[in-house]
Nucleic acid binder design. Structure first.
Lengths: 223, 223
DNA sequence: ACATCAGCAGACATCCGATCAATCGTGGCT
DNA sequence: AGCCACGATTGATCGGATGTCTGCTGATGT
């Protein structure tokens, strides 16, 4: 194994064993490189790799720190990969989303708070046929992320966020090409919010499935 | 933006634009570094970062190549993150798995081939109460991965594989072996295989949900 | 004449150590 | 309180020594 890879797994081990915790500061590059038995240049390669997936946070002139190590890590890593696959296998990625999103909404149905329901309603204020595309995308993104948040599973949230970002473009296209899409989407969102309010988990799941599948089908035919 | 980060996104752009395709060989480090306007050392940091998430494949003495860029990318990236979170939020990760696995099996029910069914059966040969832990883990891994494979969505496969990494499985099995878990698990696996053979998608989903939840409950109580 | 194999040369990545620049945090000074 | 200089730390680059792979070439054996 290359020295750099060895350094990566050594740092990883220090994290798993709890030797390094979230927020901790690593020894200076020079010192750490000596302790791990490699040159500073090689160590920097390892640190850069861990920085890419947001495990480490390097602050110039200050030091290198361990990030919060929470579920957001998934987001960065997955988003990078999803970005690369934008035009290739977007339908397969959408299939994953179609599995996760209804299940997430189903979870959310029993946990969502009145405050979150209110926020959910508010995302729909001021949205109509005349709203411009960017605002529509922002609304859509927020609508789904409130529900995801309510489900209370951060990993689920990160995964969904990463999966959805790549579809933003698709949504924009859809908004541009289909005239009645706004009213249609809004009606579906209202129905989902209603069902969430009543705590009807099964209906929520079905509605979200239909909602996601609608976009998916449009996408399938547009490709 | 730092020189290295710039290099990362430039390479990423070359991939997205199709300037670089899967399997392509990158120019030598020296040449590429000159073209991107940075030093070789800095370029190497970028390359190392991209190698960690398996976008690039560096072959010493030969050259640097673009990997297949398929769904397996997700695996590496997610597995790394999951490894780091083993003791922390494993239950949340398990919840994601409990969503994905039944849905995957549901998909597989209508697509699985006779060959795959045969292979599924064969994983259970020679497994009984006396089988040692490592063999159990191998069987379990293979059983689930055949089903995932049959579902025909590589991203789903990568995610699931990463979520139920072999280290996690090993730990669970080690805890379970003392009890009657082997016979119990085997019976559940048989039932799932039977339902798959009959193409009863709904039953498959229910069985897998029960199967995964069983492990989850054990885990919840063991923590 | 042909096939085989060892060894050599070139291309390339690997690793290192040194050097200078940029930046940040701190502590002392006014 | 505000300012400034200093030390610590990362950022970036370079040149050189080394390990490793590939392909060619020439010698050897059949």
């Amino acid at each position: 194994m290359a020295v750099t890879d060895e350094a990566i797994s050594k740092i990883k081990d220090m994290l798993i064993r709890g030797e390094l915790k979230a927020g901790d500061r690593l020894p200076p590059e020079k010192e750490l490189s000596e302790r791990l038995g490699l040159s500073r240049s090689s160590l920097r390669e390892a640190v850069k790799a861990l920085e890419l997936i947001r495990v480490l946070d390097v602050r110039r002139g200050d030091g290198t720190y361990v990030t919060s190590l929470d579920a957001k890590l998934l987001n960065e890593a997955v988003a990078f990969v999803v970005d690369l696959h934008q035009d290739r296998s977007i339908l397969e990625l959408f299939e994953v989303r179609r599995i996760l999103e209804p299940a997430t909404a189903h979870l959310a149905a029993s946990k969502i708070t009145p405050d979150e329901l209110l926020a959910l309603r508010r995302t729909m204020d001021g949205i109509d046929e005349n709203t411009d595309v960017e605002e529509l995308v922002a609304h859509d993104l927020e609508f789904h992320s409130i529900i995801t948040e309510a489900a209370g599973n951060d990993y689920l949230g990160s995964l969904l966020e990463a999966l959805s970002s790549s579809t933003v473009r698709a949504r924009i296209w859809r908004g541009l090409t289909q005239e009645k899409a706004v009213a249609h989407t809004l009606a579906e969102h209202r129905a989902i919010a209603d069902a969430l309010e009543r705590g009807d988990a099964e209906l929520v799941r079905a509605l979200v499935t239909v909602h996601i599948s609608g976009v998916e089908n449009w996408l399938r035919q547009a490709l």
